[in-house]
């Protein structure tokens, strides 16, 4: 398995011989069928976790049950999920981000690249689209407490605004400064600090005092939104920066 691992375009789509493909198809079909039969045979009504979640919703600090699960009942998973994002962010960060004081004069996070000509229609569209995306992101963050929405959705939309700017080509993002690293880790840091503070208040890690639960959840969500947006944007911009030289080489 995985014996063939291409990173460049080749003629063939498939890394196995026809016979191997056929056998693999037979094996996977059989296994899937067995799995489906197992699900159908033991299809019984499960005990209700849903009603338990609904009963505790009024002490969770939010009205949206999914947000209550993500940031109160099972907030530990969400904390670790932000750590997972941070792992990939650190892995992908360009080398010069770590160079410290000796590097080039620190540039701003977002800078304008005047040399790049932008289609006026595109420029006009961006002028509307980027603020709108930021606004929608803020709205999604706020509405998460009451209806579908929340930190990840908001972060994704805000990162989308950055992606649009980056694709248009008139703006550059720089990831060198310490403040960028703070932004990337802010979500995790605030989450841990809130967990520690609540440990002092209630005596249990990640247990919020009922009357302040909504406030603590909002603090975590704002910080998480910032970090998630920054990390998603970082992933896109860094991968684009690596991919671009190869493409330019092809089109010259």
């Amino acid at each position: 398995m995985f014996l063939k691992l291409e990173t460049r375009e080749t003629g063939s789509d498939v890394g196995l011989s026809t016979l191997a493909c056929f056998l693999l198809g037979v094996v996977i079909t059989t296994l899937s069928a067995a799995l489906i039969i197992a699900v159908i045979v033991s299809d019984k009504a499960a005990p209700e976790l849903a009603s338990l979640a609904m009963q505790n919703l009024n002490t969770s600090g939010v009205e949206n049950p999914v947000t209550a699960v993500l940031l109160n009942f099972r907030s530990y998973d969400t904390l670790l999920e932000i750590a997972v994002l941070l792992i990939v962010a650190v892995a992908v960060l360009p080398d010069q981000c770590f160079a410290g004081k000796t590097s080039l004069p620190a540039k701003r996070f977002l800078s304008r690249n005047v040399k790049h000509q932008v289609n006026p229609v595109l420029a006009g569209l961006l002028k509307w689209l980027v603020p709108l995306a930021l606004l929608v992101g803020g709205y999604l963050l706020w509405i998460g407490a009451y209806a579908p929405g929340g930190a990840f959705q908001a972060g994704a939309v805000i990162a989308g605004a950055g992606v649009a700017l980056s694709l248009a080509g008139q703006h550059d993002f720089t990831w060198q400064t310490t403040s960028v690293r703070i932004t990337l880790s802010l979500g995790l840091l605030v989450f841990i600090v809130v967990a520690a503070i609540n440990n002092l208040i209630t005596g249990t890690t990640l247990q919020y005092p009922v009357s302040y639960a909504g406030l603590f959840i909002l603090i975590i969500e704002v910080a998480a939104t910032i970090s998630i947006a920054a990390i998603l944007l970082l992933l896109f911009v860094c991968l684009k920066a690596i991919a671009e030289p190869a493409r330019e080489g092809d089109t010259q």
């Binding site: 009504a45 209700e48 849903a50 979640a53 609904m54 049950p65 999914v66 699960v69 009942f73 099972r74």
Partner: peptide, 11 residues
């Protein structure tokens, strides 16, 4: 699967 929509799998 149950009567009430369960938020846990959504999370």
């Amino acid at each position: 699967h149950g009567v009430v929509t369960d938020p846990v799998p959504h999370a």
